[in-house]
Design a protein around this nucleic acid. Structure first.
Length: 454
RNA sequence: GGCUGGGUGGCAGAGUGGUGAUGCAGCGGAUUGCAAAUCCGUGUACGUCGGUUCGAUUCCGGCCCUAGCCUCCA
């Protein structure tokens, strides 16, 4: 398959270091509040990547971490007057629940920073010993000048960065670009004992430690949001490469584009976030997932009610086709060649979805049970790779307030009786009544179907 | 200011040096008791100004607009 590698800024053939075993690390969230739909994009996109790689390769180990040590967590815990673990366990669970609702499969491993403090301390100690880090006023800093390739991933020159830096430069830094590996904690702050006193890890080191601990010194794919490219991933590379004696850290870097709301990136710092659970209250998770896959993962994506409505309409169409095939047994459970080509071309999900649309049309046109069975199998197989179309069609259309379905069924039956005796006035009256409740009736050769609109 | 991206039909969104993306919406037809659904058909689409070319939306350059990064951020 082809992957756009942020490191080289071009599409490259993907060749895992070990052809039998692909390793992927995705930067997970810092758990101090509910995740927003922008946080869901990498989770969904790289879930599709993992599904695809699991088909293409014998073995895949996919790691998505949980960052449960962070100053924002400390602040949230202090405000609530609880231990940080109370905050982190609550929001970690909420995050995992949200992802499950979006059809994201669990990662093979979900490591937490608190479980890796010893590994982090070891990494920092090694970096000091090898001359890549230094102690200053209780902090341990990474010496950026010790890594000449610094800036390669984000394509920036260190001197220029300093010129444009808007951040205040801490006095204990030898070089303004140096970043913190370990920092001291006050008695009130959470801390861990270390050779440099009681403290806590800096922001970047935890990913380096967890990645190497779970996947080895060199990993195949490292992925995350575009906004992590600098400084987070740049710093990860610097510290990992130096830590491992010059060994390459990640061979392919993938960065997803950001979600926009009103033309501006959705971010907690901007204050324009739509939480995943708010979306789930509005539409089924599958609709949100479809939206996230409807644009190529590297492009920005505007989050609007309109795209949600369009996604729902399109999914309705797919599920109508599947509903019409509900009595047909799926035979060729195999994605089409065109579909696979699209996904293997740097995860081109829009093209893959166009192929799905072709299958839907073919399904609606198919006449023989043999053709129908084959198309149904292809459709479901394509859907499985995308994490879509796996819902029972009846449940899809019936989804909503429980208990109402029986009542609607009764009205539909009543209308059918009226139609049978050609009492179209009564039949239409019942239909109008249902229309007002947002129910659409579809008469077809093999019975009546109803569904909810928006 | 520096570094990355992006500007495609009403909307969303792929792609390509010279015929159709695809979906949603609209319109026409078939079908239907009427609808809905489905099928068929339907759109002077590629920011702007130049250049290269037999031919550019696609390659090159200028300009305009826009997003991201340079600070926490998926």
């Amino acid at each position: 398959m082809q992957i756009h590698n942020s490191l080289t800024r071009q599409k490259e053939p993907f060749e895992p270091l070990n052809p039998e075993h692909v390793t992927i690390y995705v930067c997970g969230p810092t758990v101090y509040s509910y995740a927003h739909i922008g946080n869901a994009r990498p989770a969904v996109v790289f879930d599709v990547l993992a599904r695809l790689l699991r088909v293409l390769y014998k073995r895949v180990t996919f790691v998505r971490n949980i960052t449960d040590i962070d100053d924002k967590i400390n602040a949230a815990a202090a405000e609530a007057g609880v231990e940080i673990g109370v905050i982190t366990s609550q929001y970690e669970q909420a995050y995992l629940d949200d992802l499950a609702a979006l059809g994201v499969r669990p990662a093979d491993r979900t490591p937490r920073v608190t479980e890796h403090v010893d590994d982090i301390i070891g990494a920092v100690r090694d970096l000091i010993r090898s001359g890549h880090a230094y102690e200053a006023e209780g902090h341990v800093l990474f010496d950026v000048s010790s890594y000449p390739e610094y800036g390669r991933l984000s394509g920036r020159d260190r001197r220029e960065m300093i010129a444009g830096a808007r951040v205040e430069i801490a006095p204990y830094k030898r070089d303004p670009a140096d970043f913190v590996l370990w920092k001291p904690s006050t008695d009130e702050q959470p801390g861990w004992n270390s050779p440099w006193g009681r403290g806590r890890p800096g922001w970047h080191i935890e990913c380096s430690a967890m990645a190497s601990c779970h996947l080895g010194e060199t990993i195949d794919i490292h992925a995350g949001g575009m906004d992590l490219q600098f400084p987070h991933h740049e710093n990860e590379i610097a510290q990992s490469v130096c830590w491992h004696g010059g060994k390459e850290y990640a061979r392919y870097w993938m960065h997803n584009g950001l979600l926009n709301l009103d033309g501006q990136k959705m971010a907690k710092s901007v204050g324009n976030v739509v939480r995943i659970r708010d979306v789930l209250a509005q539409v089924p998770g599958e609709v949100a997932r479809y939206v996230l896959l409807s644009a190529h993962y590297r492009q920005p994506l505007d989050w609007t009610d309109d795209v949600l409505a369009q996604a729902r309409s399109t999914l309705d169409r797919v599920y109508r086709a599947l509903a019409s095939l509900s009595d047909i047994e799926a035979t060729d459970f195999e994605p089409t060649v065109e579909f696979m080509d699209a996904l293997e071309d740097d995860l081109n999900t829009p093209r893959a979805l166009a192929e799905v649309a072709e299958l839907v049309r073919a399904a609606n046109k198919a006449e023989s049970d043999k053709d129908k069975g084959a198309i149904k199998g292809q459709l479901l197989a394509c859907g499985e790779l995308l994490g879509l179309f796996q819902t029972d069609p009846a449940a899809w259309f019936g989804a909503g307030e429980d208990g109402e379905a029986d009542e609607i069924d009764a009205l539909v039956a009543e209308r059918q009786a009226a139609r049978a005796r050609k009492d179209y006035g009564e039949a239409d009256r019942i239909r109008d009544q249902l229309t007002e409740r947002g129910i659409v009736i579809e008469d077809s050769a093999d019975g009546v179907r109803w569904r909810r609109t928006g």
